[in-house]
Design a protein around this nucleic acid. Structure first.
Lengths: 199, 199
DNA sequence: AGACTATTCAAACGATCGTTTGTTTGAGCT
DNA sequence: AGCTCAAACAAACGATCGTTTGAATAGTCT
């Protein structure tokens, strides 16, 4: 039993890292098995196929991550005073900084968006559509004078900035580190608030 | 002679489209040769290797494109009155809308940023480092009270929003079209100006 | 103990990968 | 006419791909 979860976990960890480093298509099942230190056939035994492994790698990180986002938003909306735009933005972004639950989530999310549409789109729709619409509604409640269409654009650009931060961690020329993601997120929030809260 | 350039051009066009659709690693030389309607060996004959083909596909679109960006910026700085932030931002973004010179450039640029670092990074450094630093200097001249570090962050987020727009054309739920890229670019400029020009 | 189930393993399956080979083609030149 | 050489071609190279097989192994229950 422990051997099973051990093997599964080692495969997931190895696949996760290799997908982030090289992308899905450029990562072979053999490379995954080698890095995990398990037999090649174990990958197909536990996950059925390469695509099944991809789905599981992505889901196990993003699912608890999105749960935390929604919990944050629920807490805000259940509060006595109306949440500010900064509150909502931090509820959306801060889970990327929680080391315990989301140590790899930033890189996973940054990576999956960069896969070809045929690979990424089904996973994105399944995991993110609920969260995206919930947060857009939250912003709409704050900015009643901004049209839904305009708000979608602003949210779109916010997500783009966020993904770029997650993928590169720091601007070109700077070197990435854990600290730079945290401070980068603060810069991102200040930057995005200016774009979101326009007349 | 015309047969030569014909074959080269057909290969480049086919590779360009397939790289955008499926990504570099997932696109085979056979798929490229098939779509181009040429012999498989012609691909290696004309470009040396798959990586050589990638380099050429990327360079031939981005080179004239960046030239136009720099020409726009030169024209602004040579003008009688000092350029505004909007002027500079439009000099940076508008070439994506020039159908003749850059019909495929938006998708090419959006795609290359999403390739794994081992593939994308060398190409990005070679083609974009000059343009990026020139435009950052232009912004620095306008905002003398903003530190260079802070300005790099803001430029970083601007690029992220731009790339997200180029990759998806429209927010999720909306359908992409030529018109939506043009109007999306206007939304992007308004959005980014707010984030760039903060106290 | 013996039967049953879950997991690991070495080995191989056919398919497809990027690249190379040796030959044939055809236009330009003397 | 004969010569030259870039270009196109069919065919194959060895390597690697995702996946499957069937036997060996370990753990659990009666």
């Amino acid at each position: 039993m422990t051997a099973t979860t051990d093997t599964r976990e080692k495969i997931l960890a190895a696949a996760e890292q290799l997908f982030i480093e090289r992308g899905y298509a450029a990562t072979s099942m053999r490379a995954i098995a080698d890095r995990a230190g398990v037999n090649l056939a174990a990958t197909n035994y536990h996950f059925g196929s390469k695509h099944g492994l991809l789905t599981e790698v992505f889901h196990r990180r993003v699912e608890p991550f999105n749960q935390l986002r929604l919990k944050n938003l629920d807490a805000l909306e259940a509060g006595s005073s109306a949440p500010t735009a900064r509150d909502i933005l931090e509820a959306f972004c801060s889970p990327f900084l929680q080391g315990d639950i989301a140590s790899k989530a930033p890189q996973i999310v940054g990576w999956i968006y960069s896969e070809p549409n045929s690979v990424a789109r089904p996973l994105l729709e399944r995991e993110f559509s609920v969260v995206a619409s919930r947060f857009q509604q939250a912003f709409a409640a704050i900015y009643p004078d901004v049209s839904a269409q305009e708000l979608r654009w602003r949210f779109h650009f916010l997500v783009g900035s966020l993904l770029h931060l997650l993928r590169l961690q720091a601007p070109l020329g700077d070197k990435p580190s854990n600290a730079s993601l945290k401070s980068g997120m603060q810069h991102l929030i200040d930057y995005s608030l200016a774009g979101l809260a326009r007349p």
